[in-house]
Amino acid sequence: MINGIPLYWYLIVSAALFCIGLYGVLARKNAIAVIMCVELMLNAVNINLIAFWRYITPAAISGLSFAAFIFVVAAAEAAVGLALIISIYRNTRSVDPEKIDSMKL
């Protein structure tokens, strides 16, 4: 425990954040909100990674690198996703993921 905070506090918090984000992904009726919640999940993962880096191998940089790459990917993904949503909005006048269901059969 570093500064009196055991590792598992961070782990539980990140798990909770992750699950909240998961709920939002599955249950929100707006596509933009879904992507917002995806960002929450990615943040949770980052917290996890950094916590593990700090508590277990603070000398190595692999955890940090991983977290850095997640930053990059999250950003790229948010950009592309939102661009897609704009496009869909323009064509279908709707941002409801439930209405976009032509990917069946």
């Binding site: 998961l22 599955l26 439930e98 976009i100 269901d101 032509s102 990917m103 069946k104 059969l105």
Partner: peptide, 14 residues
């Protein structure tokens, strides 16, 4: 189950 909706598929996968 095969509704074509992303969120539905996500839930099933989860």
């Amino acid at each position: 189950l095969q509704s074509g909706q992303v969120q539905g598929y996500l839930l099933q996968a989860l």
